[in-house]
Simulated scan of single mutants.
Amino acid sequence: MMFSNTLTLWTGALLILSVSLWSCTTAHNDGAADCCLTTSNRRIPKKVVTSFTIQTGDGACSIPATIFITKKNLKLCAPFPSENNWVSKLIDHILAGTLKNPPQKPRGKKQRQQ
């Protein structure tokens, strides 16, 4: 009888530990790691930025922000475009660059049409 009580106690403790560890790992995989928690008003040079995304502040990400991606694949958090004029100008610069340089078709030998 003493053995079954000890076994039940250990089983219950193991179950609680397993559930606790599982809930911690799922909480860390909710995508919040890619959110900007703060923004910086420091201007970002045009030549280092390749793209951007907008963080609206809904859901897991609590503040609106602009996330600029650099050539070295760093993510820099800037204010929302409506809050800062230089952010809007940098976005316009990126969009203008993508419109000027559309993806090129693969070059190769042209095939004759018969």
Rank of each mutant, 00 (worst) to 15 (best):
C36G: 07
T8S: 00
A65V: 09
S20Y: 12
S51M: 03
R43C: 07
I54A: 13
S4N: 14
S82A: 11
I63H: 08
Q114T: 03
T98P: 01
A65S: 04
V49G: 08
K105D: 05
Q111L: 11
H28L: 06
M2V: 12
Q114S: 01
S20R: 08
G12V: 12
L95T: 15
I91T: 11
A33N: 09
Q104E: 15
R43K: 04
I44T: 05
T66P: 04
W86V: 10
T53S: 13
T8P: 02
L90N: 12
C35G: 01
H93D: 13
K71W: 06
S62H: 05
D92L: 08
I91C: 09
L9C: 00
L7C: 00
K71L: 07
H28K: 07
K75G: 03
I67H: 03
L14G: 08
Q113N: 13
K109E: 01
P103F: 06
C35L: 12
V19G: 02
V87M: 11
R107D: 09
L74M: 06
P79W: 03
M1G: 07
P64R: 13
L15Q: 02
T70D: 01
T25A: 05
Q55N: 05
D34C: 03
R112A: 03
T98G: 00
C61L: 10
S82T: 10
A33G: 01
F68Y: 12
S40E: 05
L95N: 14
A96S: 14
V87K: 11
K72G: 07
P102W: 15
C61K: 11
A32M: 10
R112L: 11
I69E: 00
I67M: 07
L99T: 11
A60C: 01
P81D: 04
G12I: 10
K75T: 04
L90Q: 04
K47Y: 15
C36L: 10
M2R: 15
A32K: 01
K71D: 00
A33R: 14
F3S: 13
L99A: 15
T98R: 10
K72A: 09
A27T: 14
V48L: 10
A32D: 05
Q114K: 10
